[in-house]
Design a binder for these strands. Structure first.
Lengths: 223, 223
DNA sequence: TATTCTTGAATGAATGGTCATTCACCGTCG
DNA sequence: CGACGGTGAATGACCATTCATTCAAGAATA
């Protein structure tokens, strides 16, 4: 490995890291800022969070942030797209390995809860800011997020076409029902009071309620 | 009715209206401001709403608001307590006329959806600001709101003691599941896209999913 | 009854503090 | 030496809150 290939090789490697693997520690400033913003937004909420807070958390100057983002909203949107995008990719990968819609729902639930328990900052940002943002930035259509919840509608539809789920449930409504329930239940880990529950426990409870309700034939749930 | 009794009688009447019947149209300034704030918060969100906006909406001077409320947060909290308080009273009254936990759940769902569809301003304030507020004002324990969601836990517990609902569901989790689902589904009416659904339709869908999931014996749902 | 006095609710212009955003300036590197 | 990524103090807009002032409606007085 000569001088040339070494240095340039490192550049390429760094770029790859920056572009493809943004979740890693603190490679690029961009990623650093996203991570910091997620943390700060979670802690203070979008409006109470100061740019200075984010800058400090990212160990960067206030002005630097404006080299990577247009304004405060832009940071918020980027946090959404980036973080939810990751989740969507992950869950899609998992779903691809399943064919049974029941198992797919189970996978969706488990993974959602796991993610939210593990990454409380993200959880809070989603839970608290999502609706707010939707109102403020009418032209921002939460693409990744919509994609995420639409997965449920797809699963339900699949199950219906296989006659495993009842046909008299509207996928459009089911997906809202489903996401709302998951989202609210996830808040358990962000409220000091009820940290006692495990992902498995809650996942199990939700599956029991949801699956038995969706199945055409009774007593058909996954044990 | 002589001159004296007429004029003084009118004063007393006005006072009674102000003090006891604050929910009426726009008797007292306090009620006027609450109504205006609900509207403005719904439209702009708590942080983007200006005191001046609320004042204008209430047809009152900026300063007047501070004769009735300590600060902006105080207005928000008052909106919650006042409006949710009303809902809690209503739903309690309805529940008191029922003994079958299945019917109670049905009543809860229907009334919630009705209220949210009818009063979109309140719906948005609850949906958007509730979580935000919970974070910001740690010492404010959302009393009325907790009371509201706890009603579901009570119903579930009642159903379990009557062996109508399965025993292996935690009321604590069920109440979150339940409220989350209801809350998210309600947003249908606040997003321009899907205004087509009726309360009955959605209520029916939710009942199907929830009840069949909660019932000990299959095929036991209310038709 | 007519006149003056008192009260306090209501007002809205002025204040002051808080940030988002900018930009003149630095150090570094090729 | 440019150029450029980065910096953080300075700027200016924005808005919650305040408070000196107004005014309408009793109370007191004559």
């Amino acid at each position: 490995m000569n001088e040339w290939s070494f240095t340039v090789g490192q550049d390429i490697f760094t770029n790859l890291l920056n572009e493809l693997c943004a979740e890693m520690k603190d490679t690029s400033k961009h990623a650093k800022i996203i991570a910091a913003a997620t943390k700060v937004f979670a802690k203070k909420g979008f409006f109470t969070a100061r740019i200075a807070d984010i800058a400090q958390e990212a160990k960067v100057a206030d002005g630097t942030i404006y080299l990577y983002f247009n304004n405060k909203y832009d940071i918020l949107i980027s946090v959404f797209e980036e973080e939810i995008g990751k989740i969507v990719e992950q869950i899609k990968k998992v779903l691809a390995t399943e064919t049974d819609p029941r198992k797919m729902l189970e996978a969706y639930i488990t993974r959602h809860l796991q993610t939210m328990k593990r990454n409380r900052n993200l959880a809070e940002v989603i839970q608290i800011e999502l609706r707010q943002t939707n109102k403020l930035i009418k032209d921002y259509r939460n693409n990744k997020f919509t994609e995420y919840t639409d997965l449920v509608a797809d699963i339900v539809q699949l199950g219906q076409s296989q006659q495993i789920f009842r046909a008299d449930i509207q996928p459009d409504i089911a997906k809202r029902f489903f996401f709302g329930a998951l989202d609210e239940v996830s808040r358990i880990w962000n409220t000091s009071a009820e940290g006692k529950y495990s992902v498995e426990e809650i996942s199990d409870q939700l599956l029991k309620i949801i699956l038995s309700g969706l199945l055409v034939q009774k007593g058909n749930g996954i044990s």
